[in-house]
């Protein structure tokens, strides 16, 4: 007769099943977040990381129109620092860098942050529907195709008698002589053109953040006798510090790499490199030239320097805005 022994603790077949299930659940628990992340990870890998690596490698080569299909750009023997030497010894390098800094700083200060914050504050302090309608209207330039939008600005800035500003504003006032305003003050138009569109992003983020501030704080400040300015200065702005950091960082990087509006408006002119920014130079070198001396390697080097500038700027912002403190757990939750 077969002896049936009592199974030891933990060796029941059912217990094994539970263990396997636990293991499966644990594995699933580990993999599931990656599964959710997978689509965006694949997109980032395919369309950002791999191109970035390729651009980085290209920046060390002299791949251009003359050796395309011949040069084995992926071989380290064909790599050198020549392109970077060419950039930093280029006579127009300081001018282009200065243009980029000025364009980014002024557009960011006056429009993407300044005007966006002011409009967000105003539209959240007036009738809710009116504020919403105003913000929706401000989105129109962003919805307009870029080429149409730029053509409208060119028509505004055109010489007399066709240009709208010359004909209806400056002419009747007797100011100027009907010049092409875009050529007289190209930077003013470039900053306006980019700023009107750029501001809409901040308006949406800031107004959402302001409306999310609990009303108790605002009421409490009013009960304490604070003026509107004091409420904004000491209650509203400190409470939207996170969106301020986000918009500043995002818009700085966006402005550093944007060039399409400038290309369509002035293409870096009217004077030599007068409105040429860094990203536009990278485009001109890598993809556009009258006689076709396209220099992919040299253009890639300009882009890589821009990526480095962008990373440095992002780190600076995180320090200035004290990102570490912003993501700390609230002290009340630690108790």
């Amino acid at each position: 007769m077969k002896k049936v022994s009592k199974p030891e603790r933990g060796t029941y077949p059912l217990s094994g099943l539970f263990r396997e299930r636990d293991l499966l659940l644990r594995v699933r628990g580990i993999l599931l977040p990656y599964g959710f992340l997978a689509p965006s990870l694949i997109i980032v890998l395919l369309f950002f990381f791999i191109p970035l690596v390729m651009v980085f490698i290209l920046s060390f080569t002299n791949l251009d129109m003359t050796n395309f299909g011949i040069l084995e750009w992926w071989r380290p023997t064909n790599w050198s620092l020549d392109n970077y030497v060419k950039i930093f010894t280029n006579r127009f390098f300081p001018k282009i860098l200065g243009n980029t800094a000025m364009y980014t700083a002024l557009t960011l200060a006056f429009f993407n942050m300044g005007m966006a914050l002011v409009i967000a504050l105003i539209t959240t302090h007036i009738n809710r529907r009116a504020g919403f309608a105003f913000r929706a209207l401000w989105l129109l330039p962003r919805l307009t195709p870029v080429v149409v939008y730029i053509m409208m600005w060119k028509a505004l800035a055109g010489p007399a008698p066709m240009g709208v500003i010359n004909k209806y504003f400056l002419g009747p006032l007797g100011i100027g002589s009907g010049e092409y305003l875009l050529h007289m003050s190209p930077w003013v138009f470039i900053i306006l053109v980019n700023g009107f569109i750029g501001a809409s992003f901040g308006i949406i983020i800031f107004s959402a953040a302001i409306e999310a501030i609990p009303k108790d704080y605002l009421i409490a400040s009013k009960v304490d006798g604070a003026t509107t300015w004091q409420t904004i200065r000491h209650v509203t702005i400190p409470m939207i510090k996170w969106p301020l950091l986000f918009v500043t960082t995002y818009q700085t990087l966006s402005l550093l790499t944007s060039f399409e509006y400038i290309m369509l408006l002035t293409d870096g002119g009217p004077g030599l490199y007068q409105t040429e920014v860094w990203a536009l130079t990278a485009y001109h070198r890598a993809l556009s030239s009258y006689f076709g001396n396209i220099q992919w390697g040299y253009g890639a080097a300009w882009s890589v320097v821009l990526v480095i500038i962008g990373i440095v700027m992002a780190v600076v912002y995180l320090r200035v805005f004290k990102f570490g403190e912003l993501v700390e757990e609230p002290k009340i939750d630690r108790l």
């Binding site: 129109m65 003359t66 127009f92 004077g271 030599l272 030239s289 006689f291 001396n293 396209i294 220099q295």
Partner: peptide, 22 residues
């Protein structure tokens, strides 16, 4: 010449800079 494009760009940049007084 295969490098005419680069030559032309450089000589034109100098011309535009001379015209602009730079």
């Amino acid at each position: 010449n295969p490098d005419w494009g680069s030559y032309s760009t450089i000589t034109y940049e100098a011309l535009a800079a001379a015209v602009g007084g730079d």
